[in-house]
Amino acid sequence: MGFELLRPATVPQAVALASAAAPGELAVLAGGTDLLLDVDRGLVAPRRVLSLARLPWHSHRWAKGGLTVGSAEPLRNLELDPRLARRLPGLHDAIRAVGSVALRERATLGGNVVRAAPASDLLPILLAYDAVVDVVGPEGRRSVALDALLARSREPALGHGELVASVAIPTTADSVYRWQRVRPANDVSQVGVAVVRSTERPYWRVALGGVPSRPLRLHDVERELARARPTREELGRAAAVAGASAPFVSDKRASEPYRRRVVALLLTRSVEQLLARATPKAG
């Protein structure tokens, strides 16, 4: 019963503690908003919990190429940074969709990556940005594409003793994250669609949440949206592909056919919104 909280002050200490733990014995706590719920429900019973609180991962910084977010940085700090909505509007949309303000004061981007929940509102937009995850472990540091890290559901492809240090997000021309829910505020999304517009190929990057297993990049949809300014027909085809190809199932939140209809719709609306934003209004 209960767990011991480990609060290392340095990264090497943290890696050493993580490496020394037997499989299943240790859980990593970035913000804890998801982990502690699982503990309460008896879904996990770690004997030791490794806190990232004292590590130098409690910040975010902007550089020329984009944004780097320390894995213990609360989401609330990001959304209160006025640059976020200007530079990464899709991430801003997605963060605002996560729980409540008081939850976002604890919840983190790093935690979302490590927990790898299929219903996460953050992972689709990070996938669409081609986010890169900086990992530290007994073998040193490495960078890995988020898509590769999310190979399996709820089980990121991290080696024994490896910890997520930060997430790097390249800035792009524009982005948006749209969701569908029963209750707009503070609900779990039935479907989430992230669309990133880029000035270089592929011009459109699309990712999807609310599918079982894990959030997905929709490369076949991106292929349909081959041009910087897709025609109405091309967009229609892309939406049809999105609706048809996503591996939806029915669950307590929504049925499979409903999700298919909504994903096509959200994709269309997202692309139209980004196109409208890309076209300076006359007059």
Binding site: V182, R183, P184, N186, V188, R253
Partner: peptide, 28 residues
């Protein structure tokens, strides 16, 4: 609009919490 207790076929309530049983918030 939003509130509904969802019993599963096995007789258990599928949404025994305030994240899946949705009462209106200030924005609704």
């Amino acid at each position: 609009l939003t509130e509904e207790m969802l019993w599963r076929d096995d007789g258990r309530l599928g949404n025994p919490g305030l994240l899946d049983y949705r009462v209106p918030t200030i924005t609704e």
